[in-house]
Design a protein around this nucleic acid. Structure first.
Lengths: 390, 390
DNA sequence: ATTACTTTGTTTAACCAATAGACAAAGTCC
DNA sequence: GGACTTTGTCTATTGGTTAAACAAAGTAAT
């Protein structure tokens, strides 16, 4: 825990952050308007804007319409002041993006993975990152950092503690990548990264409290509280896939019984033996589109179980909105209705009114973009101040 | 949302809060030590200490032991600068305490409730509060506020939205009490208040992320994140009792099925028909003490279900510690072992290492004291600043 | 065109909290 | 008694925000 006290540097940091954020959200906007929106003095805004502009984080794009007086000089956040790389590591595949500071994708790359040994995966990841870095347009800051989303639990030092699907155990990925690349690296759980992606650039931009459910080969969740990712005491909050929804149900490899993800993720395909015509979600979606009854029935059942688990989380968390991402969100047409109906039926009355359920807006890119945002966030250095009641 | 910007007043507020908190935690302590602990300059500490002392919030209690130089002047938080009233409203009973600013109990009161109509309960509550207020010793600030914990959902304005066991619906309790008493009033869910009580004055004083489970006629939970109560988007987070642990289990009055509290609260007694010798926890504990086999077996089963639900919450939240309170915590001798064993078996491997399960230290007073703390907290005006990574 | 009024953004002087460092006070230890 | 430590205060400085004056650049009506 950093020892943090109040001094003028902190004040400046806070105000700079407020101004940058205000301009990002209301762009294009004048200094006068920023002053009005934030409550900061005009002089303060002018000073900090100038400072931010000399650091290339803001741009003046010329005069706007007059409202009966001098024309305003409009300001824009300079999203192209630097670029970040975001990588998502999956079981069979690795995908990456190069984004600007506003999450716009400038380049993409992917690579299939046959083997999962730490060394070869790390090598290929480094190669992919370098490839993406080379595609960055010239900019004042260049590559400002790298974010990686992995399917497993990650501690505060960016060490992958446990990634069952990769067979990884205690892999100091952040340290390794930082040594090789000489840039700041952040490692996050895949669902946590996805939550950040949707929060900042996707379906959750207005939410302070958000729940992101990543449904795929398992289920993970990313919890956003007060606009910030909640990681828990040791960094591994969000393992909601191992919430038991059948107290004495099927045994799970985790040691628990009746885990949610046994019923509401791709793991549910295993129980159906040969009754399902395929084992991969993409293939099953095609069968569903062709009207295969058993497949459609299975998706509905899966949607029902998803709804049961989401209900549990909603009753506990009272989030503003729930966003469903991950590979299974591609089957939204087949699971969405049942899911929403189950949540509506089972959730406590008061939640119904003001809670929204969405599917991921960034689609399969939520995690990559969210991972990139972790790097951006570190670079821009957000500051949050809360004064609970006055 | 308050428009908050950085200025010198904020800086001062932050530092004053830091100093007060430091002295509260390390008392008795010298100015020099506070400076060292907080990183603030000695002069800053001296100035703010003087200001706080003239406001009667600090006291100098004379010199301490020298460590090879001038003797330190030891400082104490003046817990008797004011008093707060905390009330817990239960189904059959209403209890209240008068506490000083450190949560020490100065007076207690209770009243049994036969009827639950809003008017008579409110009247009796006001009478009890006034009675407690009169017992407050003379102090610089007198009664600084009143906190109430209720068995139901509460919104941000202190309106009781829904309290099934009281038959209450949309009762603007805070408004009513403030009008009658002319003092700041905070209304909280019973579990939320309990969580705050244990966090500040009980078993959770070192935790930043804490989960409080209140098990009684139902199950509620209070979630502490980053040292602050998390209330959710609309103020009713923590309804974990209605987490389904049997997807197609018993129907619950809430509309859901297989709700945790049907299996792990006093509601579980109803299923046992005549096999249990009593219907009240206090009576059952006596029977268990006398060796009644069926009762003991039931408590074990209840403990097992408690463990199953706690496992779910722990996997999702990754709290530092879990505290179990409410009437059922009196049966800790009969449910504790099973509970802890179930959690150890079913929780994800990494949680086991660093998570603690405790029973409430304040016993049946957690909620009252926590409610009082809500008032104290408002009075002292805590400020939290976070700078996520530098 | 001229004048009055608006709006935007900058400049100036004042303010104020934290700070470093000097210093005074009060102690220890040899 | 002298050298050294520790505690707490005092003083001058720093560096941020701010209010208010001001300059710049526009509109609108006469």
């Amino acid at each position: 825990m950093t020892k943090i006290t109040g001094d003028q540097a902190l004040v400046k940091k806070i105000n700079r952050s407020i101004i940058l954020e205000t301009i990002r959200r209301h762009a294009p906007v004048s200094r006068a308007k920023v002053s009005e929106l934030t409550g900061l003095n005009k002089a303060t805004v002018s000073n900090l804007v100038q400072e931010l502009a000399t650091h290339h984080l803001l741009q003046e794009i010329g005069p706007g319409e007059s409202s009966g007086g001098r024309k305003p000089q409009l300001l824009l956040f300079n999203g192209q002041a630097g670029y970040a790389v975001g990588v998502e590591l999956r079981v069979n595949q690795m995908t990456g993006v190069l984004t600007d500071l506003e999450g716009n994708i400038a380049a993409e790359a992917d690579d299939s993975l046959a083997e999962h040994d730490v060394e070869s995966v790390t090598q290929r990841m480094i190669a992919m990152i370098k490839e993406l870095m080379q595609q960055a347009p010239p900019s004042p800051y260049g590559i400002i950092g790298i974010g990686v989303g992995v399917p497993g639990m990650v501690d505060g030092n960016g060490t992958v503690l446990f990634a069952p699907n990769l067979g990884w155990d205690m892999v100091p990925l952040q340290q390794r990548l930082e040594e090789e690349l000489g840039l700041p690296v952040t490692i996050d759980n895949e669902a946590n990264a996805g939550a950040q992606g949707e929060l900042r650039f996707g379906a959750g931009q207005d939410a302070r409290h958000l729940l992101y459910i990543s449904a795929g080969s398992g289920i993970g969740s990313g919890i956003i509280i007060n606009g910030e990712l909640y990681k828990g005491a040791r960094g591994y909050a969000g393992e909601s896939g191992h919430m038991s929804i059948e107290a004495d149900g099927k045994a799970c490899s985790c040691g628990n019984r009746g885990c949610w993800e046994l019923y509401a993720s791709e793991k549910s395909y295993d129980d159906k033996g040969d009754r399902l015509p395929a084992r991969r979600t993409s293939a099953l979606i095609r069968h569903a589109e062709e009207g295969h009854a058993e497949t459609i029935r299975h998706f509905q059942e899966l949607g029902r179980y998803l709804g049961i688990g989401i209900t549990n989380l909603v009753n506990g968390f009272n989030p503003q909105s729930v966003i469903i991402g991950g590979p299974l969100s591609d089957a939204r047409a087949w699971i969405g209705d049942t899911l929403k109906q189950v949540v509506a039926e089972r959730t406590l009355p008061y939640h119904k009114e003001l809670m929204e359920i969405h599917f991921a807006e960034l689609g399969s890119r939520s995690t990559m973009i969210g991972a990139a945002y972790s790097a951006i966030s570190q670079f821009l250095g957000p500051v949050r101040v809360s004064v609970p009641a006055t």
